[in-house]
Amino acid sequence: MKKLLPILIILICSINANAQKLTPPHFRGGNNAFHEFLNKNLKWPESVSGGEGIVTISFFVESDGRLTDVKVVKGMSDPFNKEALRVIKLSERWIPAMRDGHFIKSKYTVPIQFFTMQAVQVLDSTKVN
C-alpha cells in the first residue's frame, strides 16, 4: 500500500493539472492582427511634439469577449495615456480565456509603445552595422 500512495498522488495531481489548463485571451486574428490594429488606429497626440515610451494598459476580457475596466497601470504623460486608452477601447470583442472548455473572465495587460520615426531610423541603422 505504501508503494501505491505516491503513484496515486502523482496521478491525482496530473489529472488536476490537466483540468486547470488555461488558454489565455487574445485579439481576434492573433498577435499580428493586434499589431496591425494598433498601427492603423494609434495616433501621435497632437498636443505633444516629442517623447517616447511605453503606456501599459490593463483590462478584463469578459467571458463574452467584451473589454472592461480598461485602465493605465504604468503611463507616460496624460495625452499618451488617453490615446492608448482610446485605442484599446476601440477594439472589437476579444476571444476570451478558456478553462476546462468554458470561456472565463480574465485580466490582460498590454504595453503600447510610442516612438518617433527618428527612433526607428536609429534602430534600423544599428541593425545594419
Rank of each mutant, 00 (worst) to 15 (best):
52 E>P: 02
49 S>Y: 03
25 P>E: 01
61 V>G: 02
105 K>G: 04
89 K>Y: 03
91 S>H: 04
105 K>P: 12
4 L>M: 07
4 L>H: 11
79 P>K: 14
13 C>K: 09
93 R>N: 15
27 F>E: 03
61 V>Q: 00
116 T>M: 03
47 S>R: 10
98 M>R: 12
69 D>T: 04
90 L>P: 01
12 I>Y: 09
66 R>S: 12
40 K>A: 13
94 W>K: 01
21 K>S: 07
81 N>A: 05
56 T>A: 15
112 I>E: 08
93 R>I: 11
98 M>S: 15
47 S>L: 10
11 L>V: 09
118 Q>H: 08
29 G>Q: 10
35 H>R: 15
81 N>L: 03
33 A>G: 04
78 D>G: 03
73 V>D: 15
49 S>V: 03
22 L>N: 04
9 I>F: 02
60 F>M: 06
61 V>D: 01
79 P>F: 00
68 T>M: 04
53 G>L: 14
74 K>Y: 07
125 S>R: 15
15 I>F: 02
37 F>W: 11
5 L>Q: 09
103 F>Y: 14
49 S>E: 11
118 Q>S: 14
10 I>Q: 11
14 S>V: 10
113 Q>G: 09
86 R>V: 03
27 F>I: 12
16 N>A: 15
78 D>E: 11
67 L>C: 05
67 L>R: 13
124 D>I: 02
38 L>E: 05
24 P>A: 04
14 S>H: 05
15 I>A: 05
125 S>P: 02
2 K>I: 12
56 T>C: 13
91 S>F: 06
129 N>Y: 06
126 T>M: 15
98 M>T: 12
108 Y>H: 04
26 H>P: 02
32 N>L: 12
83 E>G: 00
115 F>P: 09
58 S>E: 14
69 D>A: 05
81 N>G: 07
75 G>D: 03
57 I>H: 08
59 F>C: 06
33 A>P: 10
74 K>C: 11
115 F>K: 13
94 W>A: 03
46 E>L: 05
40 K>R: 15
105 K>E: 14
103 F>N: 15
129 N>T: 08
20 Q>N: 15
25 P>K: 00
31 N>F: 08
38 L>C: 10
19 A>T: 08
123 L>P: 01
23 T>F: 13
91 S>W: 11
87 V>G: 02
35 H>W: 14
56 T>F: 12
47 S>M: 07
48 V>S: 15
32 N>E: 11
93 R>P: 06
117 M>K: 13
76 M>V: 08
119 A>G: 08
34 F>V: 06
96 P>S: 05
69 D>N: 14
114 F>P: 09
108 Y>E: 01
16 N>P: 10
34 F>Q: 13
79 P>E: 00
41 N>Y: 09
123 L>T: 01
107 K>G: 00
87 V>T: 00
45 P>M: 00
111 P>M: 02
52 E>H: 00
113 Q>L: 13
116 T>N: 08
64 D>R: 01
11 L>D: 08
86 R>S: 08
14 S>L: 10
129 N>F: 07
34 F>C: 05
53 G>I: 10
99 R>M: 04
80 F>A: 10
37 F>P: 01
110 V>P: 03
74 K>I: 05
21 K>F: 03
35 H>A: 15
26 H>Y: 04
9 I>P: 11
97 A>Y: 07
24 P>S: 09
89 K>C: 00
75 G>H: 03
18 N>M: 10
21 K>I: 10
107 K>T: 06
116 T>H: 13
5 L>M: 06
